[in-house]
């Protein structure tokens, strides 16, 4: 059953003379699954995620949700506050909700250790490597105990080795069910990454974005990038990526 249903979402930017249509009628059901959204640069993927998260308003269309959904958001760049320590960066969403600081920090520590950052809680973001900062970004998304985890190109700014390790960790966290996350929506440029991780791949056209094709990935997990069946899916996806 769908947790979130997007119905004919339209979004444009700009006012007066120059209007830039970004999303052109997106209809999509998000169930308890891992969805990858694949689309060319600047087509409106981040905008779509923000609309799902409810921080940007669509011009028209409808979003139906089931019950009280909580969203976690992994940003394209880590977007950490340089004047807060790692643990306070992670605890911030809770503190802002009025949770007691001590409780918020304890919870933050729990999620920091889940993403493998034990012992780094008192560091400042500038003192961490890019991969570690991205982990902090992920821990912050998890600390609000989200039902839906939205990820905006979470691995695109990392070196290939770090990215691959972090992909495996995200899949682990997702499959092991230790968190509250029921669905993940991940934006990406990277076809292989989408095939490796997602249950369904939603392929968008260049701006204004429409859905050209939704491909189900039925491969069993853990998936093997070198297998023939994996390559077949990759080839199938490439057919729709212009």
């Amino acid at each position: 059953m769908a947790l979130v249903s997007l119905i004919n979402i339209v979004k444009s930017f700009g006012e007066g003379g120059k209007v830039l249509r970004v999303l052109d009628g997106i209809t999509l059901d998000i169930g308890e699954e891992f969805i990858a959204i694949l689309g060319p640069s600047g087509c409106g993927k981040s905008t779509l995620l923000r609309i799902i998260a409810g921080v940007e308003k669509a011009d028209s269309g409808e979003i139906k949700t089931v019950g009280n959904l909580v969203y976690g958001f992994v940003f394209q760049s880590p977007t950490l506050l340089p004047w807060l320590t790692v643990v306070d960066n992670v605890a911030l969403p809770l503190i802002a909700k009025g949770v007691d600081k001590k409780v918020a920090r304890e919870k933050a520590l729990k999620y920091l250790s889940l993403v493998g950052l034990n012992g780094f809680e008192d560091f400042y973001p500038q003192e961490l490597s890019g991969g570690m900062r991205q982990r902090v970004n992920i821990a912050r998304a998890l600390v609000v105990e989200p039902t839906i985890l939205l990820m905006d190109e979470p691995f695109s700014q990392l070196d290939p080795l770090t990215a691959e390790a972090l992909r495996a960790e995200i899949l682990d966290i997702w499959l092991s069910g230790v968190t509250t996350v029921k669905s993940i929506v991940m934006v990406t440029h990277n076809v292989e990454e989408a095939v490796l991780m997602a249950d369904r791949i939603v392929i968008l056209t260049p701006r204004p974005a429409k859905i050209t094709k939704i491909i189900e990935v039925k491969l069993p997990r853990p998936r093997d990038r070198r297998s023939k069946s994996f390559q077949d899916v990759v080839d199938q996806v490439y057919e729709y990526v212009s």
């Binding site: 921080v55 958001f73 940003f75 394209q76 977007t79 911030l92 969403p93 909700k97 609000v144």
Partner: peptide, 13 residues
């Protein structure tokens, strides 16, 4: 950084 504002609104600050 405009992303800070996105971050702030996503986490309902």
């Amino acid at each position: 950084d405009p992303n800070m504002f996105h971050m702030a609104s996503v986490y309902r600050l």
